[in-house]
Design a binder for these strands. Structure first.
Length: 593
RNA sequence: GGUUCCGUAGCUCAGUUGGAUAGAGCAACAGCCUUCUAAGCUGUGGGUCGCGCGUUCGAAUCGCGCCGGAAUCACCA
C-alpha cells in the first residue's frame, strides 16, 4: 500500500532532516479534502517541534524528501500545515489493472486459528419475532460477515430461550382453550399461533385479577391468588420434574415455533451453524454455581439462595440461585458460556444483545472471572440500541410491536408496487420479478436498519414507509444493476482488458479510485468496531460518487477506445466492491432492475 | 439516587487515531429524459454541533461541571 510507503518516508525525513525519531502512529495521513488538489495529505503540525520551523517550511522540506524517495508521488502542494500529495496516474492504473482481476480484493483469507463465536437472535419461544429482533439479527449476521472478511474463523450460534414460566403460560392457554388447534389445521404460522395463546393467557389473567380486585383484594394479593397463574406455576413444576405429558406438549408447541422461526430466518437470509437451548444449559449453570459455592467463591444466604458479592468491583450482589434452588437468567448464561468453551474453545465469544442488558454482561464477565475461568475475558457484548416508534418504545402488551413477518411482507409489497409503477419488470418472468421484489424490499429494510450506528437508539416510523430514494438500499442496488448492464452492453471483458498508460484520470475518477482503494481499510475498521454502519456509509459514499461521475461523463459514447476501456474497467471494479459491501451487510444485489 | 449510553439542519442520520470552510438523504423550491436504466443528476434555502469552562497550533470529537432524553440497578428473561 502506498500509505505505508509515505508513512515510512515521513519517519525517514524527520530522522534525516531534524535528527529526531517519530513513531509510525504519530504520522497523520488522511485523504485529501475534495476542494484541494491531491490524493493523500500529511498533517505536518506534529513535526514542527522537531523541525523548529513553521508549518509551511517544514511541509516543504518533507514534501521534497517524499518526492525524491517515493516514486509514486509526482507532486505536492502546501496549504497551511497540510502537505497534499498527488499520486501518479500510473499508480492508479496499475492498481486497477491488478485488482480488477482479483475477486478477493479486500478480503483476508481465513486463518486456521481458534474460532470466534457470535451469538445473535436469541428468541423466546412464546412470541414471534418483532422489529427489535430484526435489528439484532441483521446486526449479528452482518458483524459475522465482516469478521469473516477480516480473516476470522466465525461460528454463528443461536440461543433459544425455551424454558421458564412464560413458556408455560402459552402451553396452559392452549390446553384450556385451544381445542387442539395446530398450524397444519389452521394454516397459521407456528410462532404466531403460539404467540396468540401467550397473549390470550395474559388477557385471561388480567381479567381474573380485575375480578379479584373488584371483590375487595388488593393488587398484590390478587396476583398471588390468581388461579390461572397458579396453574401455570404448577405446569412449570411438572415440566421441571420431567412429567411426560407436559414434556410432550412442550416439545410439540416448540416444534411449531421453530418451524415458524425458520421461515422468518429464511426470508431474512440468515442462518446459524449451531443452536443452543436454555433447557440444555441451565443445569450446567447450576452445577457451576454450586461448585463455586463449595469453594467459597460465592456465598449462600440463610434462606438457601446463592449470591455473588461484587461490591469490591463497585457493583451489587447478584443472585445466582433462588432459595428454592431454581436457576435464574444469569445461571443459564454461565452454563451456556461454559458449554460453548467446551464445544469450540473459542478465541472470543460475542453476544449480540440489546443495550438494556449492558449491566447483565458486565456482571456475567465478573462472575466468571471470580469463579476462576480464564476465558471470562473472551466474552464481549455487542450492544445495540432500541428501535423506537414515534410514540415511544414498542410494548407487546399494548400491541404496539411491529411484527417481523408483517413488516417484511409489507416491504416486499411496496417494492413490487413501486417497481411495477416504474415499469421495470415488464420483460421479467414472474419468478425473476418475484425474486427482485424480495431483494429490493429486504434491501431497503436491511440498509435502513444497518446504516445507523448500533449503539444509538433509532426511530422507525411505520406511517412513513421506508424510502426507496436517496441514501437507501435500493439506490445502491440500482447503481449496481446499472453497472452490470453497462458492462454487458459495452462488451467489456476484464481478461482481455488492457489499460493504456496515457490515460488522463479526471477528478471524479480519482475520487472513485481512492474510495475503492480504501475498501480493505474500511473492512478492518468495521471489524474492530463491529459496526456494519461503517460499511453502509462507505458504500453509500462510493455509490454516490460513482453516480455523479456516471451522469457527468457518458461511458459508452466516448470515442477514444482507451478512455472507454478505462471507464468500463473502473465501473466493473466499482460494481464489484459495491456487491462485496452489500454482501457484508447481508443484502443481495440484482444484475438488473 | 448510583452506573452506562445518547444529544449535530424542520425530520432521519453521517462525520476517520483531535485537522482545513461541519456533510448526505427526506421534506420545499428551480432545472435535466431524441444518447448508454430519471429508484438518477445539478442548483437554492436551511446550523449557537444541548449549555459552560478547560486542555492546544487546532475541539462536533478529549476532560470536568450543568441541562435534557433513554436504559439499567428484580428470587423477570
Amino acid at each position: 500500500m502506498i500509505e505505508d510507503k509515505i508513512i515510512e518516508a515521513c519517519i525517514a525525513a524527520v530522522k534525516q532532516l531534524y535528527g529526531q525519531d517519530v513513531q509510525a502512529d504519530a504520522v497523520q495521513l488522511q485523504k485529501t479534502r475534495k476542494e484541494f488538489e491531491g490524493d493523500l495529505t500529511v498533517v505536518v503540525f506534529p513535526f514542527t517541534k522537531a523541525s523548529r520551523k513553521g508549518p509551511e517550511p517544514t511541509a516543504q522540506e518533507i514534501g521534497e524528501y517524499i518526492i525524491a524517495q517515493v516514486p509514486e508521488i509526482c507532486k505536492y502542494g502546501i496549504v497551511k500545515g497540510f502537505l497534499n500529495l498527488v499520486v501518479k496516474p500510473e499508480y492508479w492504473l496499475e492498481f486497477l489493472r491488478q485488482q480488477n482481476k482479483n475477486p478477493n480484493f479486500g478480503i483476508v483469507a481465513s486463518s486456521a486459528s481458534k474460532p470466534w463465536l457470535i451469538e445473535f437472535s436469541s428468541p423466546n419461544t412464546n412470541k414471534p419475532l418483532h422489529l427489535g429482533h430484526i435489528r439484532n439479527n441483521l446486526l449479528g449476521w452482518s458483524v459475522s460477515k465482516i469478521l469473516e472478511a477480516d480473516g476470522k474463523n466465525v461460528i454463528r450460534v443461536n440461543l433459544v430461550n425455551d424454558r421458564g414460566i412464560h413458556i408455560c403460560k402459552s402451553m396452559l392457554a392452549w390446553k384450556k382453550w385451544g381445542n387442539g388447534e395446530s398450524p397444519e389445521g389452521s394454516g397459521k404460522k407456528g410462532d404466531h399461533l403460539v404467540g396468540e395463546y401467550y397473549v390470550l393467557f395474559d388477557k385471561e389473567y388480567k381479567k381474573e385479577i380485575a375480578a379479584l380486585v373488584a371483590s375487595g383484594l388488593n393488587e398484590e394479593e390478587a396476583q398471588k391468588q390468581s388461579s390461572i397463574m397458579q396453574e401455570a406455576q404448577k405446569l412449570l413444576r411438572l415440566w421441571e420434574s420431567g412429567d411426560e405429558e407436559t414434556l410432550k406438549l412442550w416439545k410439540m408447541m416448540n416444534a411449531w415455533v421453530y418451524a415458524g422461526f425458520d421461515l422468518t430466518y429464511q426470508t431474512m437470509g440468515i442462518a446459524f451453524e449451531k443452536t443452543y437451548y436454555e433447557s440444555n444449559t441451565y443445569l450446567l449453570g447450576k452445577e457451576i454455581v454450586e461448585k463455586g459455592e463449595a469453594q467459597h467463591l460465592l456465598k449462600r444466604k440463610e434462606d438457601g439462595s446463592v449470591w455473588a458479592d461484587l461490591t469490591d468491583d463497585g457493583l451489587d450482589e447478584k443472585l445466582l440461585l433462588r432459595s428454592d434452588g431454581t436457576s435464574v437468567y444469569m445461571t443459564q448464561d454461565l452454563g451456556t458460556a461454559r458449554l460453548r468453551v467446551d464445544d469450540f474453545n473459542p478465541e472470543r465469544m460475542l453476544y449480540v444483545v440489546g443495550n438494556e442488558q449492558n449491566y447483565h454482561f458486565t456482571v456475567l464477565k465478573k462472575v466468571l472471572a471470580r469463579l476462576g475461568f480464564p476465558w471470562a475475558e473472551a466474552i464481549h457484548h455487542v450492544s445495540y440500541g432500541m428501535v423506537e416508534l414515534p410514540e415511544g418504545k414498542m410494548k407487546s402488551r399494548e400491541g404496539t410491536v411491529v411484527d417481523a413477518d408483517d413488516l417484511m411482507d409489507e416491504m416486499k409489497t411496496t417494492a413490487q408496487r413501486m417497481t411495477e409503477e416504474l415499469g421495470k419488470t415488464a420483460d421479467f418472468t414472474p419468478e425473476e420479478a418475484d425474486r427482485l421484489y424480495h431483494m429490493i424490499g429486504m434491501g431497503a429494510l436491511k440498509y435502513f436498519i444497518l446504516k445507523v450506528d448500533p449503539e444509538k437508539n433509532m426511530l422507525f416510523n411505520p406511517e412513513e414507509s421506508i424510502d426507496f430514494d436517496g441514501n437507501t438500499g435500493p439506490f445502491i442496488q440500482y447503481t449496481h444493476a446499472r453497472i452490470c448492464s453497462l458492462i454487458k452492453r459495452g462488451g467489456f471483458d476484464i481478461e482481455k482488458s488492457s489499460l493504456s498508460p496515457q490515460i488522463v484520470i479526471c477528478d471524479e475518477e480519482r475520487d472513485i479510485l481512492r474510495l475503492c482503494h480504501d475498501f480493505p481499510v474500511i473492512i478492518h475498521k468495521a471489524a474492530l468496531e463491529l459496526s456494519p454502519a461503517q460499511i453502509a456509509n462507505y458504500t453509500y459514499e462510493l455509490t454516490r460518487t460513482y453516480n455523479t461521475f456516471y451522469q457527468k461523463i457518458p461511458v459508452l459514447k466516448e470515442n477514444d477506445e482507451a478512455i472507454r476501456h478505462f471507464r468500463l474497467a473502473l465501473s466493473a471494479f466499482t460494481g464489484h466492491i459495491i456487491k462485496e459491501c452489500m454482501c457484508l451487510l447481508g443484502i443481495e444485489v440484482p444484475e438488473r432492475m
